[in-house]
Structures are given as structure tokens and as C-alpha cells.
């Protein structure tokens, strides 16, 4: 029986059946988990937005839009925060690839004047204990309420206004760069009157 089974056709048929069964069951699991996954992602975005802008009554995720960065190489996601239909602030999702390892994703909250309300670190793979200190209030505090138009968003070592994290200048540079990009994109959008 084992010998008869090894014919080429049999091999192909067995493999096809195994793959087919696997893909069909995966399709089923995928359909089943699709909604919870979407919900988990929505919750994650809302949590980030909530911590950088406040006092809105809309769902910023549903009204989000993308705007190109000034250098035109990328585009950022904007989440408008509105109260009774009036724009009170924007959360901008921005990233930097210049960190120590992997991309750093930030959510930066601006009020309508362009002052930074707060910054939330969505995702990073920086060194625990060094670069990861960018998530601490001690580091983030220096940005709160400041306007990048007057605050120079580069590390003090490079002639700017940002206090670098000890031992993690690269992370701080990447972080500041990401905030700067968010600010420039935001500023351009308000100058053109595109922010609505």
C-alpha cells in the first residue's frame, strides 16, 4: 500500500489537499478575527489620540485624512479633534526611521495655534533603559505647551532646545525629527487653509 501511495500524482494530490484544507480553515479564522483585530487597532489609535488632545466630542479616527510632508517623500495621518463641530486641535501620527533600531511612531497633539499639547509614543524598538526613556513624562514634559515655531527642535548638542536623554542622543534626535516633521506638515496645512 505504501508503494502505491508514492506515485507522483498521489504526492501532488495529497499536498494540494493539505494546502487547501489549511487555507480554507485559515480563511475561516481570518473572518472570525477580522472584527476584533480592527477593533483592537481602533482602540490603540483612540488611546493615543486621547492622551495628546482633549475635550473633543467626535471620533477623530473616522474623520482622519492624510497630508503630504513638506519634502513630499511621505504623508502623515491627521486626526482632527472637534467640539460641537468646531476644530479644537489635531493629533498627527508621525514617525522617524532614524532611531537606534526600527521605526519610532509618535502621536503629536497640536492645538489650533500649533502649540504642542502632548506627545504619545505609539511604538518603538529602542533600547530598554536608554532610548525607551522617551516614553517617560520627565522627557516629554519639555515639549508640552511649547510651539515649535519658537522652540528649536534639535538636540542641545546640535544647537537646539531639546534636552537629550542621557546615553540616547540618537533616539532623541530621531524623536525631535519626527515632531519637527509633524509640525511642518501641520503648519503647511493651516497656511494653505486645508485644515478643516
Amino acid at each position: 500500500m505504501a508503494a502505491a501511495k508514492s506515485s507522483f500524482l498521489n504526492l501532488v494530490i495529497t499536498l494540494t489537499i493539505v494546502t487547501l484544507v489549511a487555507s480554507l480553515s485559515l480563511g475561516y479564522v481570518y473572518e472570525w478575527t477580522k472584527e476584533p483585530i480592527a477593533e483592537a487597532q481602533m482602540a490603540k489609535q483612540l488611546k493615543a489620540i486621547e492622551s495628546v488632545v482633549s475635550g473633543y466630542d467626535n471620533n477623530p479616527v473616522l474623520e482622519s485624512y492624510r497630508l503630504p510632508t513638506p519634502d513630499g517623500r511621505d504623508s502623515l495621518e491627521f486626526f482632527p479633534a472637534k467640539k460641537k463641530g468646531e476644530l479644537i486641535g489635531v493629533a498627527v501620527k508621525t514617525k522617524s526611521s532614524k532611531g537606534y533600531s526600527g521605526d519610532i511612531w509618535l502621536m503629536v497633539g497640536f492645538n489650533v495655534n500649533g502649540d504642542i499639547q502632548n506627545i504619545f509614543v505609539i511604538e518603538h524598538k529602542e533600547t530598554p533603559g536608554l532610548g525607551s526613556k522617551m516614553t517617560t513624562p520627565k522627557f516629554l514634559q519639555q515639549f508640552m505647551g511649547r510651539n515649535p515655531a519658537t522652540m528649536k527642535l534639535t538636540v542641545k548638542k546640535d544647537g537646539g532646545d531639546v534636552d537629550a536623554i542621557t546615553g540616547a542622543t540618537i533616539t532623541t534626535r530621531a524623536f525631535s525629527g519626527a515632531v519637527q516633521t509633524a509640525h511642518e506638515t501641520f503648519k503647511k496645512s493651516t497656511v494653505n487653509g486645508a485644515a478643516n
Binding site: T19, A22, S23, L26, G27, Y30
Partner: peptide
């Protein structure tokens, strides 16, 4: 639209 099949197809 079957990006979830990534692991299976890649290894094959």
C-alpha cells in the same frame, strides 16, 4: 486580499 496567508506561502 489574502495577506493572512503570508506565513504559509512564504515558507512553501
Amino acid at each position: 486580499g489574502i495577506a493572512y496567508m503570508q506565513t504559509v506561502t512564504y515558507i512553501l
